[in-house]
């Protein structure tokens, strides 16, 4: 297939500017049986995350007597992409699970729950580039919703190089035909970016480009961070405003 023109008149294929995110929708607490959960849409990505725990670890030999073990499972539904994805873990999803887990591990206060385990499950229902970043955002909201003790919030966003331009939050075409894709996750505490929790790169960037990418990612992450907070706030605010109605029913 011939490579399509990705940038026309300084605008991207979906009409976004270079520094613009795709529309994001986050909802916390969507699953009743999970301790914490989150549904997230980031452009055409649709992600659902569930958190269980701290709970007992099975099999037993995985237990750590000094801290909690964290298990992160990234999985793509067979129908999440155009061509059916063979179900089950593969090289890619195992790797994404590992790096995402390592991004969350320093943020969660594992030492408070020795011998226990915290399970994070994220399912990609529909994929459109940047699923690992969307999954991390969803997982982070689900963890907070579960009441897990953490140092702050993990917020993640990807940056790409497309036809020589550094763009924020690439979509599928830009990811497929672009020159570089850089997913980044930050630890954000108290409205401030404290540290980088994850950084991967597919393709090449010059130092200058990397600096610019980082600036863009920081800006994008702050926007997502606010939406993540809002989603959690909304859940608990909703509980309060619903009450008068409930009383009328009785």
């Amino acid at each position: 297939m011939q490579k399509p023109k990705l940038i026309v008149d300084g605008k991207r294929l979906d009409g976004r500017g270079f520094e613009e995110l795709r529309p994001i929708k986050i909802e916390a607490g969507v699953l009743k049986r999970a301790d914490g959960s989150c549904y997230l849409e980031m452009g055409k990505n649709k992600i659902i995350a569930a958190v269980y725990g701290p709970r007992e670890v099975h099999p037993r030999h995985l237990q750590d007597p000094s801290k909690a073990v964290i298990r992160y499972r990234y999985n793509m539904a067979p129908f999440s992409v155009e061509e059916r994805k063979k179900p089950g873990p593969d090289r890619r999803s195992v790797e994404i699970s590992k790096v995402s887990r390592e991004a969350l591990e320093p943020v969660i206060m594992k030492e408070l729950f020795p011998r226990s385990g915290i399970d994070v499950f994220v399912e990609v229902l529909q994929a459109d580039a940047g699923t690992r970043t969307a999954c991390l955002n969803a997982a982070s909201v689900a963890l907070i919703d579960a009441g897990v003790a953490m140092r702050g919030m993990v917020t993640s966003v990807a940056v790409a190089k497309v036809e020589g331009n550094i763009v924020l939050d690439p979509m599928k075409e830009e990811d497929n035909y672009g020159e570089a894709d850089v997913p980044i996750a930050f630890l954000i505490r108290n409205d401030r970016i404290e540290s980088i929790a994850l950084l991967q790169m597919d393709g090449r960037l010059t130092l200058e480009e990397m600096k610019k990418a980082m600036e863009l990612a920081k800006k994008g992450a702050m926007q997502i961070y606010r939406l993540q907070r809002e989603a959690i706030m909304k859940k608990y605010m909703k509980e309060e405003t619903e009450e008068p109605e409930e009383e009328n029913e009785q």
Partner: peptide
């Protein structure tokens, strides 16, 4: 939410908080 700065006096830190560099942050929601 976790990571929110809630006090600047580490001696006041109580349940559900953690102290780092003399500042008190919330530990969980």
């Amino acid at each position: 939410m976790p990571g929110d700065l809630i006090a600047k006096n580490p001696r006041a830190a109580g349940y559900g908080t953690y102290v780092e560099k003399g500042k008190v942050y919330a530990k969980f929601l």
